[in-house]
């Protein structure tokens, strides 16, 4: 017995409402983020991740307020990501009550941001989000590349090498999303999950593609992930967090019950 594998419901939030896009296109309204976060806390979620997909400046202020309200009512760790560009943005979210901040595109434009922010706030609160997509195999070996802009723009950066570099710069955790799978409900892309969990010493959260409870099990047993993140299977009531944990426990995975 020891450290439990974590189940992390993810709230994609736009202008103060939880939404979930399928392949980032079809947006369905799923409700109030504070209520939903409290519901997942009561269900026994191990952490909550909040991804802000708001574009406008006014919307950003709404986000800070939402984070404050969640932090006042939820006593499990809260990660906030989306649109984080600077040490100042990180400070704002931590002060609003986030325990960790997830950096994605900004780390690609300015990798040193990861070092500066982990030096300032500690590695434990710096999560680097990686959106990876499978690209042409080299010598029959699969390869994954970092994409930005919701999976539309390639960067030419190798996802495995990038995860190593982010860990070296002081990231405390990797949030890995497969852009091939996100929103498909076909399960995690286990190849890239395993490649990155093997490549780094820090914990890895698998994300993108969960459609059923067996997918969560695969992410951990085959992908080697330390935590699994899912949104729609929980938001639309297909499964509850306790059902997911009971299923994982049956499959021999250590969870917090």
């Amino acid at each position: 017995m020891g450290l439990a594998k974590r189940i992390i419901p993810c709230l994609d939030v736009e202008n103060g409402r939880v939404v979930k896009g399928v392949n980032f296109v079809d947006i369905r309204d799923a409700g109030d983020p504070v209520e939903i976060a409290m519901r997942y806390n009561e269900q026994g979620a191990d952490e909550i991740t909040f991804l802000d997909i708001t574009a406008s400046h006014e919307g950003r202020e709404t986000t800070v307020h939402t984070v404050e309200q969640i932090a006042e009512n939820v006593f499990i760790p809260l990660t906030v990501g989306g649109g984080i560009r600077s040490v100042e943005d990180i400070r704002t979210m931590l002060n609003a009550g986030a325990d960790k901040v997830s950096i994605n595109t900004a780390a690609i434009h300015d990798p040193e941001l990861v070092r500066r922010s982990s030096d300032r706030f500690g590695s434990q609160c710096i999560v680097v989000a990686i959106d990876a997509k499978r690209v042409d195999d080299v010598d029959g070996e699969p390869r994954w590349e970092i994409f930005t802009h919701g999976g539309r723009r390639p960067t030419g950066i190798d996802a495995v090498a990038w995860s190593r570099r982010m860990a070296e710069l002081g990231a405390g955790e990797i949030l890995l999303t497969s852009m091939d799978r996100d929103g498909t409900k076909n399960g995690f892309e286990l190849g890239v999950t395993r490649a990155i969990t093997d490549a780094v010493e820090i914990p890895v959260i698998a994300s993108g593609g969960v459609g059923n409870l067996e997918h969560l099990v695969e992410g951990i047993l085959i992908g080697g992930a330390d935590a699994v993140l899912a949104a729609s299977i929980f938001h639309f009531g297909e499964y509850t967090v306790p059902e997911a944990k009971a299923y994982m426990a049956e499959r021999g995975i250590e969870v917090r019950l």
Binding site: L3, A4, R6, Q124, G172, E173, E201, I202, A227
Partner: peptide
């Protein structure tokens, strides 16, 4: 085992 020790332990 990954470091940091992150998550719920007994």
């Amino acid at each position: 085992l990954k470091v940091p020790h992150m998550g719920w332990n007994e």
